[in-house]
Design a binder for these strands. Structure first.
Lengths: 93, 93
DNA sequence: GCCAATACTAAGGATTCCTTAGTATGCGGT
DNA sequence: ACCGCATACTAAGGAATCCTTAGTATTGGC
């Protein structure tokens, strides 16, 4: 259903709307942590990547997995996760 | 266990290390979306608030709940959520 | 009303980003 | 090996954004 092509830094930037002549350095500056994209660009990059914006800011890998997966679940499965969390918290909270 | 005091914008900034004389306008600029904190300040604000950085970037409320809750779970409960997600994805992925 | 605390805004110097120009590295083909 | 091309990466400065100072507006308690 969802094709998983491999993107260069530059192509990812272009797909997100950066001028092709500037896409390579900008994307590289983002990936190396030298600079960070403004909110609009962050949103567009995440759309291209198919992940929620929050995914980029997940410190630990488990949280990142949860965020990436949860965003792609259907409503029923989302409710399943949410109610499981409710249950856990009601026991220990 | 965890006390939930009510913080003014200014006090939150001070607790995160902003100079008291500048905390009020800066925090207000953040909350109104006029500017955004740099990465260090973002981290510190989130520490004071007790939420993961990713929480600030959650577009929808359900995702925000999942992020905030998951971060405070113990390892066993985290594994429970993760394996549930694994299971769901293996069925529909 | 008055006072204090909080919320908010303006403007400019300080900082960071985006663009241009260019170098470096990796890799397939001959 | 050499060439050619795509990709990765860097430097530097004009462009954009942020942080600070100074101040106004609003809210809540007395």
């Amino acid at each position: 259903m969802r094709e998983k092509r491999k993107l260069s830094q530059k192509q990812l930037g272009i797909d997100a709307g950066i001028d092709p002549s500037a896409a390579s350095p900008r994307m590289n500056q983002y990936e190396t942590g030298k600079h960070r994209p403004d909110p609009n660009m962050t949103e567009r990059l995440c759309q291209v990547l198919g992940v929620p914006v929050a995914y980029l800011y997940c410190e630990d890998d488990d949280l990142a997995r949860v965020v990436a997966s949860f965003a792609n679940l259907n409503d029923k499965d989302k409710r399943k996760i949410l109610s499981m969390i409710d249950q856990i918290e009601s026991l220990e909270g």
